[in-house]
Amino acid sequence: MYTALLIELCKLQPGSLPQVLAQATEMLYMRLDTMNTTCIDRFINWFSHHLSNFQFRWSWGDWSDCLTQDLEKPKSKFVREVLEKCMRLSYRQRIIDIVPPSFSVLSPAKPACLYKYGDEGNRSLPGYAVALCLTIAIKNKASNDEIFNILKDVPNPNKDDDDDEGFTFNPLKIEVFVQTLLHLAAKSFSHSFSALAKFHEVFKVLAESDEGKLHVLRVVYEGWKNHPQMIAVLVDKMIRTQIVDCAAVANWIFSSELAHDFTRFYVWEILHSTIRKMNKHVLKIHKELEETKARLARQHKRNSPSLVASPVWFQGRLGVVACPLSSSVNSVWYNSEKDFERLQDVLLNLLLFLKFNLLTYDISLATPSYSYLMLGQLVFNPAMVRPIQGTTESSIP
Rank of each mutant, 00 (worst) to 15 (best):
K11S: 06
L12D: 07
P18T: 08
Q19M: 04
Q19N: 12
Q19K: 12
A24T: 06
M27W: 03
L32H: 01
N36Q: 12
R42E: 14
F43A: 03
I44Q: 05
C66M: 05
T68I: 05
Q69W: 04
D70V: 05
K75N: 09
K75V: 03
K77L: 09
R80Y: 05
E81I: 00
V82F: 01
V82D: 00
Q93D: 13
R94P: 00
I95H: 00
V99M: 02
P100C: 01
P100Q: 02
V105G: 04
L106S: 00
P111H: 03
R123N: 11
S124D: 08
P126R: 04
P126Q: 06
G127H: 00
Y128I: 08
V130G: 00
A131H: 02
I136V: 14
I138K: 02
S143E: 11
N144G: 11
L151Y: 01
K159H: 06
D162T: 10
D163Q: 05
D163L: 10
F167A: 10
F167W: 07
L172R: 03
L172S: 02
V176W: 00
V178I: 13
Q179K: 07
H183S: 13
K187S: 15
S188K: 09
F189V: 12
S190L: 11
S192C: 12
F193T: 05
F193K: 12
S194D: 14
A195L: 03
A195V: 06
K198I: 14
K198M: 11
F199V: 07
H200D: 09
L206W: 04
A207Y: 02
K213M: 12
K213H: 06
L214C: 08
K225A: 11
H227M: 00
H227Q: 02
Q229Y: 14
M230D: 05
I231W: 00
V233C: 07
K237M: 10
M238A: 06
I239E: 13
R240C: 07
R240L: 14
Q242T: 10
D245W: 01
A248T: 01
A259Y: 03
T263Y: 04
R264I: 01
I270L: 12
I270K: 04
S273L: 08
I275V: 15
N279T: 13
H281S: 13
H281E: 15
K284S: 13
I285Q: 10
E288M: 13
E290M: 14
E291H: 10
A294Y: 10
A294S: 12
R295Q: 11
R295A: 13
H300C: 06
H300M: 10
R302N: 11
N303Q: 08
A309T: 08
W313F: 15
Q315T: 15
G316W: 10
G316I: 10
G319T: 08
G319S: 08
V321Y: 13
P324G: 15
W333T: 14
W333I: 02
Y334W: 13
D339N: 13
E341I: 11
D345Q: 15
L348G: 12
L350M: 14
L352Y: 04
K355F: 05
F356I: 02
N357R: 14
L365R: 07
T367Q: 11
P368E: 04
Y370V: 05
Y372S: 09
Y372H: 09
M374W: 07
N381L: 04
I388M: 07
G390W: 01
S394M: 07
S394T: 09
I396Q: 09
